[in-house]
Design a protein around this nucleic acid. Structure first.
Length: 110
DNA sequence: GATCTGACCACCG
DNA sequence: CCGGTGGCCAGAT
């Protein structure tokens, strides 16, 4: 029975639709860990690059790409998001009001 | 098992 | 929006 913390988190992240984003805290809450936002980051960090899990759709509360240990990944993430039609502000930030994923609403976009 | 670290968040000013 | 503070907790050492 593989329901570990990571598994649950991945399960939630996997449900994030294309062209939408979610925050770490949001994912944590949906996974059933109201105050374990950091573990979401942990779980995603442990994730292999070419995983099916859309880790790039996870942003921090301010709607920007979280700084990673390896800076190059920031650009990769941004590129992936732009490919999905998500626009970045000049400051490299995303309008959460516009792109935030809510469990109820799973379609209608770009 | 104590200590440190971290892809964070809410809260306050 | 920005920066600092406290909190929360699974891994790594």
């Amino acid at each position: 029975m593989p329901s570990t913390l990571h598994e649950k988190i991945y399960a939630v992240v996997r449900r994030v639709p294309r062209g939408r984003v979610a925050t770490y805290g949001q994912v944590a809450m949906m996974a059933g860990f109201p105050r374990h936002a950091r573990h979401v980051g942990f779980a995603l960090r442990a994730l292999p690059e070419r995983s099916k899990v859309p880790w790039h759709r996870i942003l921090n509360s301010r709607g920007e790409v979280s700084p990673r240990a390896v800076p190059s990944f920031d650009e990769i993430q941004r590129q992936l998001l732009e490919e999905e039609g998500i626009e970045f502000s000049p400051a490299g930030r995303i309008d959460l009001e516009r792109y935030r994923w809510e469990d109820d609403v799973d379609d209608f976009e770009i």
